[in-house]
Design a binder for these strands. Structure first.
Length: 316
DNA sequence: AAATCGGGGTG
DNA sequence: CACCCAGATTT
């Protein structure tokens, strides 16, 4: 595909029109969040990590819980892994919390307790990829750019590129370039969340084109209107009895034990989860995996939340 | 490129 | 039960 050709094909007057229509939509529909207006890189980092693969309706509670417990970079860095995981709770993908913990330690030890603003440095931090790096730059440092997420890919892929299912059909590099052209100068901290909210409520996976303010402009509208079949965005495997299901069960129990300062043996952990011998064997492997990821510790015949016994001590 | 990593919610 | 989600990392 000739990217240059595709870019120049964007009707210039549509750029201004799309910006105008969405900014008007934002007045009534954009949802405000506490990390969007105060240029706090730490808040932006935490929010970005919380947002990974998680609906916005859940994020404020997780974000507030984290900030209440660890109001500064240093507080987070100096917390124990067990405390980190306890606060993360049932937010999902606990690996995110562990990586965020590591990232805070790196910022304290290597960057003088400052979160970098440079993208090359940001994406080297554990758990920080292109999206989260952009979130930090946009909300933390007021840098004018686009954080490409699933919503923005979908909106631009449809409205500009004409692909009904951009996640499968649109070239990510083209989305990047389109996004840069559509960005209203100086408004990244408003524009990005507006697009995301629009993608979460109107230009959804199964779009609500009837109520879409861009339907006259959207290049993919005719195809979508024809009622073509929309494929799943990604393969979904059955959650029940999956590794992820059992990992979640294990961590949930260990959070409760840690919260009550109870000791717990590895054997009792496994037996409390199942009497099935084959499944017990599978759980043993998952426990080893969790320990390797430093989400739980193993010592003698005991097991616990975090990277080392003694949940109230720092683990630096 | 494909698999893996939670958990809550919707239909 | 299938699918979705303000992704990142490993295989």
């Amino acid at each position: 595909m000739n990217l240059q050709f595709e870019i120049e094909r964007i009707p210039k007057k549509n750029v201004g029109l799309i910006q105008k229509l969405l900014m008007e939509w934002a007045k009534d529909n954009k949802i405000p969040f506490p990390w969007q207006n105060n240029r706090n890189p730490y808040y932006a980092l935490v929010a970005g990590v919380c947002a990974q693969q998680t609906q916005m309706s859940r994020i404020l509670e997780i974000f507030n819980r984290w900030i209440d417990s660890f109001p500064t970079i240093e507080k987070g860095a100096n917390a124990s892994r067990a405390e980190i995981l306890q606060v993360w709770g049932n937010a999902g993908y606990p690996r995110r919390a562990a990586n965020l913990h590591k990232t805070l330690k790196i910022c304290v030890n290597k960057y003088d307790s400052i979160i970098p603003h440079d993208e090359d440095l940001l994406i080297q931090l554990p758990g920080v990829g292109p999206f989260t790096a952009s979130i930090i730059q946009i909300f933390g440092y007021g840098i004018d750019k686009t954080a490409i997420d699933t919503n923005i890919t979908r909106i631009y892929g449809r409205v500009i590129c004409g692909d009904p299912q951009p996640v499968h059909e649109s070239d990510p590099k083209l989305i990047q370039i389109v996004a840069a052209q559509l960005l209203p100068s100086g408004k990244a901290h408003i524009w990005n969340p507006t697009l995301m909210d629009f993608g979460a409520t109107v230009c959804t996976a199964k779009p609500k084109c009837d109520s879409c303010i861009l339907k006259k402009i959207c290049v993919a509208r005719p195809k979508l209107h024809s009622g073509i079949e929309l494929l799943p965005t990604k393969k979904t495997s059955t959650f029940m009895n999956s590794n992820r299901y059992w990992r979640g069960k294990i961590l949930k129990i260990l959070r409760e034990k840690n919260n009550n300062s109870e000791n717990f043996s590895r054997k009792n952990l496994v037996v409390s989860l199942t009497k099935d011998l084959d499944l017990q064997e599978k759980l043993q492997k998952l426990i080893d995996d969790l320990a390797k990821e430093e989400l739980i510790w193993l010592q003698e015949n005991m097991v616990g939340l975090g990277d080392s016994p003694g949940s109230n001590r720092n683990s630096n």
